[in-house]
Computed example of a mutant assay.
Amino acid sequence: MRYILACLLLSFVCYGAEPSAFERQSGATKKDLSSLQGTAQSLLNLTTQIQQQQETLKQSQEGLMSLYESQHQKLQSTIAQSTTNTQEIENLKSEIAALKTLLEQQSTQIATLDSKMQELHTLTIKTQENILQELEKLSAQSTKGAQKQESKQSQKPQFDKSKSPELFAQAKELIKKKHYKSAKDIMLWLKDNKYNTPETTFYLGEIAYLQKDYHLAIKYYKASVALSDKGAYMPTLLLHTALCFKGIKDMANYNSFLEALIAAYPQSKEAAQAKELKQ
């Protein structure tokens, strides 16, 4: 029997734990923040492209200026050497005028790029400010959530420790009457105060099972078996664990727990139920 229950514990361990509700963030806020960060990155990429274009234009302008100066010197030299070659002089003048026009056009383009760079810089700063604002909102939400959690914890009901047996019996009656919240409050308090921990943990699993919170029920059942596998409630625990796995459509574990129940407690009424379920 101990071997079978050890196998069950391993099966429980393989069953992954879920993240707590406190660790979750607002999906909409995260999406907004991701969108803002994507926009900022796009702006930075565009700024880099414009800077590259501007550098290329400046290099081209430097080349044209050098050519302009060379042609201008050639013109002066030609004029000095001969005043009769009028056609050559006119051609050089035309080339120099064309170069001057091209330089002026490139200067205009560079000025336009400078203006765009300034606009992008302003927009990037604004986007970064929006990201910071969203981060501040997330931080405020986390702080508010922590405060709420602390407030809930401080509002836990308190009971007389000397009356733990009576409280335990009262909680079981409340479960029968379907007063699950009141029963859970008592069982949690008993568990926190180390009263009959394996069985109180089992009953916390029962409350979750009856409320169809199958993941939570499996978690409590696993914890109960880890503390002790000797309780009279073990057949019920195995049967309800199987039904929890069926509830979350894990049929492999469902069948495994039915078989374990039949093998470990063949004479129990729960084993009889398990056989009917298997048929």
Rank of each mutant, 00 (worst) to 15 (best):
D185A: 12
K178L: 04
L190F: 09
L167P: 03
I186T: 05
L174M: 15
N196P: 09
D185G: 11
K194D: 12
I175E: 07
K178C: 03
E166Y: 14
Y180P: 01
Y195T: 04
W189D: 03
D192T: 06
K172Y: 07
M187I: 09
K181N: 03
P165L: 12
L167Y: 01
W189R: 05
F168E: 01
D185H: 11
L190Y: 09
E166L: 13
A183K: 00
K178P: 03
K176T: 10
K178M: 07
K177F: 10
L174S: 14
S182I: 06
K178I: 06
N193S: 06
K184S: 11
K194M: 11
A169K: 15
E173G: 14
L190V: 10
L174G: 13
D192Y: 01
K191C: 11
D192N: 07
K191A: 12
K178H: 08
D185M: 09
K194N: 13
W189P: 04
H179Y: 14
Y180K: 00
K184W: 09
E166Q: 13
H179R: 15
K178F: 03
S182W: 04
A171T: 04
Y180N: 00
L167D: 00
Q170K: 06
Q170T: 02
N196R: 10
K176N: 11
S182Q: 11
K181Y: 03
K172W: 05
Y195D: 07
K191R: 13
K172V: 05
K194A: 13
D185Q: 13
L190K: 07
L188Y: 14
K172C: 04
L188F: 15
K177G: 10
D185F: 09
I186V: 08
F168H: 03
I175Y: 09
P165D: 12
L188E: 15
A171Q: 02
K176Q: 12
E166M: 14
A169V: 13
S182V: 05
E166P: 11
E166W: 12
F168Y: 05
P165F: 12
M187L: 13
D192G: 05
A171L: 03
L188G: 14
A171I: 01
N193Y: 02
A169I: 13
I186W: 03
I175V: 12
S182L: 09
K181T: 03
P165C: 11
S182R: 09
M187K: 08
Y180M: 00
K194E: 11
I186D: 01
S182M: 07
P165H: 12
L167G: 02
A171C: 05
A171V: 02
I175L: 09
K191H: 14
K194I: 08
L174Y: 11
F168S: 05
F168L: 02
I186Q: 04
W189M: 04
A171N: 04
Y180R: 00
N193E: 02
K172D: 04
